[in-house]
């Protein structure tokens, strides 16, 4: 990882609860379905429902007590003078960097669970790619707004030169017919 020379900030602690809720919702729904099968649908063998239920429970325990806390611990970001970066993953590491001078626009997003926890996610878009290039989840809403304002300030104060990056080589021997 690249933490050595970056000033990493971990996302808010409540991001763990968000992840736990995110894990729970589909698994609990699945559990309910299996429970209904076990009680009222005789055609489906009980073993299926019971083993399925056990698997769901196992996944739930792993998700809530192991994955979510760990994932929230390894989700971090850094804001520097001219770029913003995001690091995530315990086993599969990923780091995404967007320089401010390539930023097209940015958004703050908040789902119902996030609103409940007072969290927001900062989503950044560049011209490279169809969707969002970088999304930093689990930010306290005030922090997210503060980062947004900071980034907008930097982008606004950016001064561009007239010169373009790509220019033709003016080699005289290029003349030809």
């Amino acid at each position: 990882m690249n933490e050595n020379n970056r000033n990493l900030t971990r996302v808010d602690e409540r991001y763990r609860y968000f992840l736990q809720i995110q894990v729970c919702i589909p698994l609990l729904l699945l559990g309910v379905v299996l429970f209904v099968f076990w009680l009222w649908v005789p055609r489906i063998p009980d073993a299926f429902s019971l083993y399925g239920g056990a698997a769901v429970l196992l996944l739930l325990v792993i998700g809530v007590f192991i994955w979510a806390p760990r994932r929230s611990r390894v989700t971090a970001y850094y804001v520097e003078d001219d770029l913003i970066g995001f690091i995530v993953g315990a086993l599969w590491h990923k780091e995404v960097v967007v320089p401010f001078n390539r930023l097209q626009h940015l958004e703050l997003q908040q789902g119902p669970t996030e609103r409940l926890l007072g969290l927001s996610r900062l989503v950044l878009y560049t011209a490279g790619g169809t969707g969002a290039d970088l999304a930093i989840p689990g930010l306290r809403t005030e922090t997210a707004e503060q980062i947004r304002d900071q980034v907008l300030g930097i982008v606004r104060s950016e001064v561009l030169e007239d010169e373009a990056i790509t220019q033709a080589n003016d080699a005289s021997e290029a003349r030809h017919d």
């Binding site: 086993l91 599969w92 590491h93 995404v96 960097v97 560049t126 011209a127």
Partner: peptide, 30 residues
Amino acid sequence: LPISKMQSISWAQGPLQRRLNIASVVVCSA
């Protein structure tokens, strides 16, 4: 790609790659 026309860049490494001391880089251009 002219280097500074890059839009965003990501760096990734899975557990196997870590063992082999290798990684992947994706450079997104417009």
